[in-house]
Amino acid sequence: MGLIASGVAMVLLYDCLVEANTSNYRTVPWSDDGIDGSEILNQSLPPLAIDSSRLYFNRIPKAASTSMLNILHALSAKNNFTHKSSSVYNMRILTSEQQNELAASVVESEAPVTFDRHVHFVNFNSLGFDSPIFINMVRDPVERIISDYYYRRSVARKHIDSYAVTPSKFWLEKSLEECIRRSDDECQYMTGYLQVGHMVPYFCGHHQKCMVVNDEWALEQAKKNIERYYDVVGLVEMLAETIAVLEKRLPQFFSGASEILTRIGPHNVNLEKPSVDAAARNELKQNLTNDMILYNFIRDRLLRQIAELE
């Protein structure tokens, strides 16, 4: 079920990402003109209120999300909860009204229940609802960008006849190194510019400032949300250890997860992904400063949780 849903998701998600020479990843400079800075920079977080009978996995693309989804599906019957996968795959950023609709649908569902969706963090408390337990998975930021870049092309090649506009041969065959050399939007992560492809917004939220590359406020907001609302944020590079932490901390949902992981193994691996040279990797690493800081912050937090298992 998870693999079929994932395949359909990819077709829908990437249906509008193909053009002559690039994708719809657009970089534009951000300006706070006309925005109340005090509202952005000094916003107070609401009192913490968590509903432990509901769990939300706002999954990040190319970060073991399919493996985690399959584990949740497999465990739902065993641990007597319902898992609900969103049928919306290409809407990561929500208006205030859409956030309210999402939150209401979660709190109105019969518990115990778990949810997954590719979406930026939604602060249920600020909307007047108890928050579900949030979880997520992250991956080395450079490796995730590389994987996502080539996975979009792999999906486009497999479903090329389904597109209203046929992907160009140039776009399909363009290497990441060439994309970086040309400064194409889909592989540019420029400080102070809006970009949809990086990791921080998944934990920061829906304010436009969350999407600004290497913005200090966005990074700190992401850290605060992780500490307050995310019981576990795991690492792809430490998947087995992450699952062990989830079993220990959230047994109502993840009891038996290690056994399931051993049985099903990793999913959605792109065998067509080529190697990427060191220069391209280094440039991505230098540009993804805040993603790297957040990744290490999450890694240190997970290591502390692993130590608590002993």
Score class of each variant (00 low, 15 high):
Val11Glu: 09
Val11Ala: 15
Leu13Pro: 00
Glu19Gln: 08
Asn21Pro: 00
Thr27Arg: 14
Pro29Lys: 15
Asp32Glu: 10
Asp33His: 12
Gly34Phe: 10
Gly37Arg: 15
Ala49Cys: 04
Arg54Trp: 10
Tyr56Thr: 01
Pro61Met: 15
Ala63Cys: 15
Ser67Val: 13
Asn70Glu: 09
Ala77Trp: 02
Phe81Pro: 00
His83Val: 12
His83Arg: 01
Val88Met: 09
Tyr89Val: 09
Ile93Val: 08
Ile93Met: 08
Leu94Gln: 03
Ser96Glu: 11
Glu97His: 09
Gln98Asp: 10
Gln99Gly: 10
Ala103Trp: 12
Ala104Thr: 03
Val106Gly: 07
Ala111Lys: 14
Asp116Gln: 03
Arg117Ser: 09
His118Val: 12
His120Ile: 00
Phe124Arg: 06
Asn125Val: 03
Asn125Arg: 09
Asn125Ala: 11
Gly128Ile: 04
Val138Gln: 06
Val138Arg: 06
Pro141Glu: 04
Ile145Glu: 07
Asp148Lys: 05
Tyr151Met: 10
Ala156Glu: 00
Arg157Trp: 03
Asp161Thr: 06
Val165Phe: 14
Trp171Ala: 13
Leu176Gly: 04
Cys179Pro: 01
Asp184Cys: 08
Asp185Arg: 04
Cys187Ser: 14
Gln188Pro: 00
Thr191Ile: 11
Gln195Trp: 12
Gly197His: 06
His198Pro: 00
Cys210Leu: 12
Met211Phe: 15
Asn214Val: 02
Lys223Val: 02
Lys224Cys: 08
Lys224Pro: 01
Asn225Pro: 01
Val232Ser: 07
Ala240Val: 04
Thr242Leu: 04
Ile243Gly: 05
Leu250Glu: 14
Gly265Trp: 04
Asn270Cys: 00
Glu272Thr: 10
Lys273Arg: 14
Pro274Ala: 11
Val276Lys: 04
Ala280Trp: 12
Asn282His: 15
Asn296Gln: 11
Arg299Gln: 09
Arg301Phe: 06
Leu303Pro: 00
